[in-house]
Write a protein that binds this DNA or RNA. Structure first.
Length: 629
RNA sequence: GGCGGUGUAGCUCAGUGGUAAGAGCAGCGGCUUCAUAAGCCGUGUGUCGUAGGUUCAAAUCCCACCACCGCUACCA
């Protein structure tokens, strides 16, 4: 039975198709920080992370690199382990979906669901057009024929296994509404509820081996492997012992937090709860979706290649300050900006000036004027005021952390640090020491003890640097970490090193080269392959918006020899007026398709990066129909 | 197209019916010198996106509009 003090939190398991980047790092550091705070308050804590290793993309990446999928995974997992090591991540377990225990457990769960009728095999009829290599619904067919090839498609049957997700739709909507903390922040909850207004279909959880072999084989049909998401989500259960070590499992489940990025909300907030319901397990208490880091104004995500490697940041600035920055600057669930400039401002202002400098001045004053740490003799009003806020601070910090309000928790600590600086100005111990050494001692003890307390509260965020500082401060081990008065009067103290040296903005630390795009080993094509693509110039004759579609424009174009109609997803980037009369480049021999009921006989070429799209054209004017080679 | 969100000081944001609208950063002026050229004090005439409405009273509630964003549909 899970007791109230057991705290289980997870990150997603990261797909090994990609190198670790700041998105992965943020989630993982957040989890680490939360785990450390909960351990510090005495909670029985389990922090799970890992990697997701099955699926199509892994198989493809492996085959293009000429290695087995397992070899590919074995290579990639090292990058994640090393990254977390370097970022000071203290996880309790690192799961790989290729771990045998996970594979076994997933198969047991599948068998159980299958036996209880939660999974069924469905043979869906399909009107399959060989020319198009795709299925058509009856509605899409024109007079029973493929609209492209005007040929009657074959009716073929394909089998797959489906999880009865749809039957849990009403239950899920109800559950989400009755448990306001289940999906956070609220905007994500609304999105999920919006998603659930449309009918939910059953979830296809198998892939025929003929198409994809890299996955967990279904226990009840060796011709299939498990859909990668189904396999991956179950890690949250298998890693803590489900279904073979129920005692361990029940100690931790349900999870207190699944931390995720906002890109995987549907899988976690729709698929996962229904799977758990079908298994018969309670749902995690909270699924928290955080935002994305914008790097120099550009979106950072898995699919984009403008990767800023967390390890590079750490090499330049140090782990602790990077962790601090990431935790301090991203507000609950919102997107945040990262740039060197923003980082340096935050670092200099809070870590160097407010905190680090305070440590230096207090310790220096003690070393210079006293042989040992002085006593706090007669606390006056200023001392009492500091002590009052020092006693409140651990409580408010832990409260905020328990609500995932990390930014505000850190703000509270740094505000307290500022108040210590102010206290120093008010009491001026460097003057007092000349007139009243006892009172100067009281002031310095108060400042040092306040500093120690602030440092202790910052330790989960900056474990390395803070440990370094705390190891120098002599304490009375009998007294509790968060209690006032732990610093030991009469003990000697070493001079402390400069913890966070100020970064001089004029000396730009651009030692790091702009991160080169990952070199993917892409297969090369021959000139003959290229020749298969018929590219020609074309003149745009007419353009109109496709009704009820945001992105679509219908164009008629002149190819010199003929006129054609194409549909293109560029309405958000070009207005019809901008296009008429322009020369564009099209793929002339592309298989036609029907988009929104409109036939499209070709594709225009456009360059797209970071959300910006521009059509390709020729530098000098040229007749339509010119061949491009 | 549908659903939802955001728009407050140069920047990042807090503030959801009621004293003259706030914080941090940046800027400017001063004090101080124990300290990492750090610290402290002082300093903001901000159309609270625009235009209406409800109210004794609105940044805060309602309507419309504008801008941006998210999810979703359609987008190879």
């Amino acid at each position: 039975m899970k007791n109230s003090d057991s705290f289980f939190l997870t990150t997603p398991i990261y797909y090994v198709n990609d190198m670790p980047h700041i998105g992965h790092a943020y989630t993982t550091i957040l989890a680490d920080v939360l785990a450390r705070y909960h351990r510090a308050r005495g909670a029985d804590t389990f922090f799970l992370t890992g990697v997701d290793e099955h699926g199509q993309k892994v198989q493809q990446a492996a085959s293009s690199a000429g290695i087995t999928p397992q070899e590919h995974c074995d290579r990639m997992v090292v990058h994640f382990r090393e990254a977390w090591e370097k970022l000071g991540i203290n996880y309790d377990f690192f799961i790989r979906t290729t771990d045998q225990f996970h594979i076994d457990a997933v198969r047991q769960v599948l068998q159980n669901l299958y036996d209880r009728g939660e999974i069924y095999q469905h043979e869906y009829g399909g009107y399959y057009c060989v020319g198009c290599e795709r299925f058509y619904t009856q509605k899409e067919l024109v007079d029973g024929k493929c609209p492209q090839h005007l040929k009657a498609p074959d009716f073929i049957k394909e089998k797959n296994y489906f999880f009865r997700m749809s039957k849990y739709q009403d239950w899920l909507v109800d559950y989400i509404q009755k448990n306001p903390d289940f999906i956070q922040p609220e905007s994500r909850k609304n999105e999920v509820l919006g998603f659930l207004k449309n009918p939910l279909s059953d979830l296809c959880i198998s892939r025929p081996k003929a198409r994809l072999s890299w996955g967990i084989e279904l226990p009840f049909d060796a011709e299939y492997v498990t859909y990668v998401w189904f396999d991956a989500l179950l890690n949250y259960l298998t890693a803590i012992g489900y279904p073979n070590d129920l005692k361990r499992f029940e100690h931790w489940w349900p999870a207190n937090y699944h931390l995720i990025g906002k890109d995987i909300v549907t899988t976690h907030c729709v698929y996962w709860p229904t799977i758990l319901k079908a298994i018969g397990l309670p749902l995690p208490k909270t699924i928290f979706a955080h935002g994305w880091w914008m790097i120099d104004e550009t979106k950072m995500s898995k699919s984009l290649k403008n990767i800023v490697k967390p390890l590079d940041l750490v090499d330049v600035y140090g782990v602790d300050s990077v962790r601090y920055f990431l935790m301090r600057d991203m507000m609950l669930g919102q997107d945040a900006n990262f740039s060197e400039e923003i980082f340096i401002k935050r670092y200099n202002s809070e870590l160097a000036n407010d905190f680090g400098n305070l440590a230096s001045r207090v310790v220096t004053l003690i070393k210079r004027n006293f042989t040992a740490i002085p006593e706090a003799a007669q606390p006056g009003n200023d001392e009492i005021e500091i002590q009052v806020s020092a006693r409140k601070l651990p409580q408010t910090t832990h409260q905020l952390i328990s609500e995932l309000r990390v930014t505000e928790a850190l703000e509270g600590i740094i505000t307290f640090v500022r108040s210590i600086n102010k206290y120093m100005e008010v009491r001026q111990p460097w003057q007092l020491v000349k007139t009243d050494k006892t009172e100067a001692g009281t002031v310095l003890y108060t400042a040092l003890e306040s500093l120690r307390l602030a440092a202790t509260l910052l330790e989960p965020v900056m474990p390395t640097k803070i440990k370094e500082l705390l190891s120098i401060l002599p304490v009375d081990e009998q007294k509790q970490e968060f209690a006032w008065g732990r610093i030991k009067s009469g003990a000697t103290i070493e001079q402390i090193p400069i913890l966070f040296p100020r970064i001089d903005k004029s000396v730009k630390t651009s030692a790091e080269p702009p991160s080169a795009p990952l070199k993917k080993e892409e297969p090369l094509i021959t000139i003959d392959d290229f020749a298969k693509v018929k590219l020609t110039t074309a003149t745009v004759l007419t353009v109109e918006k496709v009704p009820d579609a945001t992105k679509l424009l219908k164009l008629t174009i002149d190819l010199g020899t003929e006129k054609r109609q194409i549909v293109a997803g560029i309405a958000e980037h070009y207005s019809p007026e901008q296009l008429i009369g322009k020369t564009i480049i099209v793929v002339a021999n592309l298989q036609p398709v029907t988009i929104r009921g409109i036939k499209s006989e070709g594709m225009l070429l456009a360059a797209k990066k970071d959300g910006k799209l521009t059509l390709l054209s020729s530098i000098d004017s040229i007749e339509p129909g010119a061949k491009i080679s």
